[in-house]
């Protein structure tokens, strides 16, 4: 489940930056860009909250 959420998070992150590129390419207008950036933002925060910053609680140590 966590792995799925992680994948969805990364896809949302991809969409955050893909939307402006679609706008740049003329495929989407500015309003569509804004809408997709907002959707991607919501999805990112909702899904990332389940796996970012939870590693420590599960006992992982300092990175190196």
């Amino acid at each position: 489940m966590k792995k799925i959420l992680e994948i969805v998070s990364y896809l949302a992150l991809l969409l955050v930056v893909a939307a402006p590129f679609m706008f740049y390419a003329g495929k989407w207008d500015l309003e569509q860009n804004k809408l997709w950036m907002l959707i991607a933002t919501i999805v990112w925060f909702v899904t990332a909250a389940f796996w970012i910053g939870t590693e420590k609680k599960e006992g992982s140590s300092d990175d190196s």
Partner: peptide
């Protein structure tokens, strides 16, 4: 802040592209 950091960097990039 940790959750927002990667997203924020990309939104800054988006500002530039738009």
């Amino acid at each position: 802040a940790n959750i927002a950091a990667p997203w924020m960097v990309l939104v800054f990039l988006a500002f530039g592209i738009i």
